Each structure stands twice: as structure tokens, then as C-alpha cells.
Simulated scan of single mutants.
Amino acid sequence: MPLPEPRTDDNSTADLTGVIRARRRQVWRRRLQLIGAVAGVLVIAAVLWFSPLLALDKVNVKGSKLVDQDKISESVLGSDGGTPLPRVRPGAVEKAVLEEFPRAKEASVHYAGPRSLNITITDRDPVLAITTSDGYQLFDDEAVDLGTVKKAPKGVTVLEESAGSPDQKTVSAVIRFMAGLRPSLRSDLASIHAKDEKNLAGVIDTGEAKAKVAFGDSTSASLKMRTALQLAADGRTEIDVSVPSVPVTN
């Protein structure tokens, strides 16, 4: 007796095929949606990248007393004005500002709306004022010329004339000495003068003690200043700390 032939379920096969096709359509639908979203983002990015609607036309500058803020604004607009804001790189603007305006120590640039930038300037701090015929020429601890003012700023040590205007080596030695002092020590040095780069001297004035001090060269500035202040506090009025480990007093 012949065996019965296997039974084929045509309906089950058709259902499985339909499910596979539906899943394929769903996968392709999602892929097309993703492609469309990416294309949309690229179109928007292209519009923002090239659109004159976002062209830089305003630069707000604040924080500086040593640099003309209007000149900074004019400079940035001169180089980047009309450029769509997404193409303006804050880091590049900061670098350009510091190169063109060396009296600025730091420049912080941020986007401020669709067509403008905000720039905050941190000025260099003067540590030395040199007497001139026009007033006082200011320098920071990196020997950057900060310009001339009529009156020396409060807390800035004045390099007084010592047999004529000091040469560049002497000025550099004084600035190195000042740069080696912490602000708290620097503020107690009322004035300084120099015969040459190896013979620096000054007057310390803490409000409670005052003394004339010979510092010698520009090395070990903080140690020399601390030693002089201790001796001045003990009532010494003439102090030589050229060799700080062996100070000489009168």
C-alpha cells in the first residue's frame, strides 16, 4: 500500500512571504527616512555656512582699559565682517586680537546672537613704571610696553632715574626682578632705581616700616625681598641683600 504524500500548507508559505516583504519595506522605509533626515541637516548646515543672513556685522568688546575697544571691534569686523557666523572660529579671532593688540593678555570670544560676537579682554598688569618726560612708561612682567600715563598707577613700582635714562639691559634686569616677586611682595616695593643691570636698589614701605635696600642683580628676587622686609620690621633702615644669605644692615 503506497504511503501518503507530505501535505503542503500553501497558506502558511504565502503568509511567511508576505511577512518577509513587509519587513523589507519597513527596513527600506526607515533607511529612506534616515537618508532624508541627514540630507535635511546637510541642507540646513549649508544654508547656515554660506547664508548672508548670518553674516557677522557687530562685535561687542569689553573689559579693557589699556586697549581701545573700538579699534578691536573695527579690526575683527575688518577681517571677519560679512562672514557667516558659523564660519567664524572664536579661537582664530582670539589669536588675531592678541597678536594685533599686545597690551591684551587674554581675549575670550563668544557667539552673541546670529550676527554678532562678544569679546572680553583681560589687560596685562603693569609691574613697573619708568619716569619719562611725558609721565610714566608702563611695562608688564614680560617687558611688554603698556604705554605712557601721566600718573603711575597705585601699587606699581616706579623705576626712578639713575644718572640718566637706563639702557635696555638695565630695564630688562629690573623687569626680571619685578617678575620674580609675588604681588604681595611687589606692593611693598615703593620705588626702585638701577645704576646698571647688576646694581638694583629700592625703597620698601609697608606702612609700618620703611628702608633703603640694595638688591644687587635680578636673581632670587623673592628671597631678597622677604629678607629685607624681615630686617625692616626689626627697625633696620639701610639693608644690603645682594647676598641674601648674608645680609648687611645699618
Rank of each mutant, 00 (worst) to 15 (best):
residue 90 P to R: 00
residue 62 K to R: 13
residue 136 Y to D: 04
residue 189 L to H: 01
residue 136 Y to H: 06
residue 63 G to Q: 05
residue 24 R to W: 12
residue 130 I to Y: 01
residue 63 G to A: 05
residue 52 P to Q: 13
residue 88 V to A: 00
residue 171 V to I: 13
residue 89 R to I: 09
residue 71 K to R: 10
residue 107 A to R: 00
residue 170 T to Q: 03
residue 181 L to T: 01
residue 99 E to L: 09
residue 204 I to D: 06
residue 161 E to W: 03
residue 178 M to R: 02
residue 246 V to N: 12
residue 241 V to Y: 07
residue 123 D to I: 07
residue 166 P to Q: 06
residue 118 N to H: 11
residue 78 G to T: 02
residue 51 S to N: 12
residue 159 L to Y: 00
residue 245 S to W: 03
residue 236 R to P: 03
residue 6 P to D: 09
residue 36 G to P: 08
residue 5 E to P: 15
residue 242 S to H: 09
residue 161 E to Q: 08
residue 143 A to K: 14
residue 79 S to H: 06
residue 10 D to K: 10
residue 6 P to R: 05
residue 49 W to S: 14
residue 190 A to K: 15
residue 179 A to E: 01
residue 170 T to W: 02
residue 95 K to D: 06
residue 139 F to M: 13
residue 219 T to R: 07
residue 22 A to I: 04
residue 191 S to V: 02
residue 72 I to F: 04
residue 15 D to H: 04
residue 18 G to M: 10
residue 14 A to G: 00
residue 37 A to D: 06
residue 87 R to D: 11
residue 226 R to K: 14
residue 229 L to K: 12
residue 216 G to K: 01
residue 191 S to C: 01
residue 7 R to F: 12
residue 68 D to Q: 12
residue 166 P to V: 04
residue 142 E to M: 15
residue 81 G to T: 04
residue 223 L to A: 12
residue 14 A to W: 04
residue 148 T to H: 01
residue 176 R to A: 12
residue 80 D to K: 10
residue 228 A to H: 02
residue 211 A to E: 13
residue 32 L to V: 08
residue 23 R to M: 14
residue 140 D to I: 10
residue 166 P to D: 08
residue 245 S to A: 15
residue 201 A to P: 02
residue 140 D to H: 09
residue 237 T to I: 15
residue 69 Q to E: 14
residue 102 P to T: 14
residue 167 D to W: 06
residue 169 K to M: 09
residue 190 A to G: 10
residue 55 A to M: 11
residue 157 T to M: 05
residue 59 V to L: 05
residue 167 D to E: 09
residue 154 K to Q: 13
residue 100 E to W: 04
residue 139 F to G: 09
residue 223 L to Q: 14
residue 120 T to F: 07
residue 51 S to T: 15
residue 68 D to A: 15
residue 173 A to D: 07
residue 149 V to Q: 04
residue 37 A to P: 11
residue 160 E to H: 02
residue 156 V to G: 06
residue 34 L to E: 00
residue 137 Q to I: 00
residue 240 D to Y: 07
residue 213 V to G: 09
residue 99 E to N: 09
residue 67 V to Y: 02
residue 113 G to N: 12
residue 21 R to A: 15
